[in-house]
Simulated assay, not measured.
Amino acid sequence: MSVITFICAGQMASAITFPAMENGHEVRLVGSPLDRDIIDGLKKDNFHITLKRTLHDGIKYYQIEELEEALDGADAALCGVSSFGLDWFCDEILPVIPESVPLLSVTKGMVDLDDGTLVPYPVIFEERQPEGKHLDINAIGGPCTSYELADHDHSHVAFCGKNMETLKMFKELLATDYYHITLSKDVVGVECAVAMKNAYALGVTLAVGLSEKMEGKIGIQHYNSQAALFGQSVKEMTRLLELIGGGPENIIHGAGDLYVTVFGGRTRKIGTLLGRGLSFDEAMEELQGVTLESIVIATRTARAVRKLAERGVVSLDEFPLLMHVDSIINEGAEVNIPWDDFTMIKE
């Protein structure tokens, strides 16, 4: 048995407690400052108020002030912070984690640098840890929704990091007959692939709203148009992987995650609203209070591509769907899918 400390009690981190507990480990779940109600509820009856699932008996629950106690004697730690808590995690949590405790992060995202380079969050974690500290930082990528993992639906993800022995250790801790894990040392490839899918999921789900608008009926779907946008997304994501130096095999994680995201969640909601004809501001107003990582990722990815185009590395014509999504978000453009640009023939 190993001791695993889960830091932040969001839906995905909490869902991963299921394979951890079922493999016989001691699980300590620590809430972030935003998770106080979640932890208070779990202490009463193990019911997670946002995951809407009852967690296993035997999990030990902690508020953030008890983090050091929860880390005492831990063999591994799992980071469940959302991308919006990145700075908080870097500033407040990384300094507290002992170097002897390897870290596995579920946080998906990337930032764009001034030269157009896209950098995934595990790299940011490494750069932001205290000077002289050397944490063993790893991450999870791939198509896996928290509630379906908690329900034991078969899921296939990738664990990535620099140290294969650490990755094997994490796989041994968490792999089950329903949680299937591939290991990869290509951190940039895996993590950028699954981050960029948020931008393209918004693009694909425009077709859902357009179908509803055309038919005048909520819930109606035309799958040809969705499939076409899905295919264009995979094409552009593959090119982006090439640009960042990620292995092409990682497209399976990005495309799989794109599929999952298109079929549910917050990104589908805003894409559908935009497709129905709402302006970006109107759609955001309707979804007031909902955090949308797809907006951040689409903006950052498009900004990076524009910088690369300025340097002559790429042509914007290679990314017509991404550029259209960006124009909707940041320039107030109306939805007008650039179908003809998808069919351009390369000379």
Rank of each mutant, 00 (worst) to 15 (best):
G24I: 11
A70S: 13
T301E: 03
H156M: 10
L206K: 03
K213S: 12
R306H: 15
G31D: 12
L78A: 09
L51T: 03
T238L: 02
C192E: 02
K52S: 12
D136C: 10
V325R: 01
M164W: 01
G85C: 05
D57A: 12
G132C: 09
A175C: 07
F230D: 00
V157M: 08
G265C: 04
H25R: 12
N336T: 08
E65H: 14
V190C: 12
E212Y: 10
L94C: 09
K217Y: 10
M169D: 06
L94I: 12
I345T: 15
T301P: 00
V335N: 03
E318C: 09
G109M: 03
A195C: 01
S327C: 06
A150K: 04
L118D: 04
D177R: 07
A302I: 07
N250P: 03
G142W: 07
M110P: 01
M169C: 02
S105P: 07
T54W: 09
L135N: 01
V305W: 03
E310L: 13
L55H: 10
W88R: 00
T145V: 05
V101G: 11
M344V: 14
S14N: 05
L34R: 10
A195E: 02
F170C: 08
E331C: 07
V260G: 02
E347M: 05
T145G: 08
D326L: 04
K185S: 14
D115G: 03
L287M: 14
V27Q: 02
H156K: 05
Y259T: 12
F342I: 04
D87P: 00
G209W: 05
L34F: 08
A77S: 14
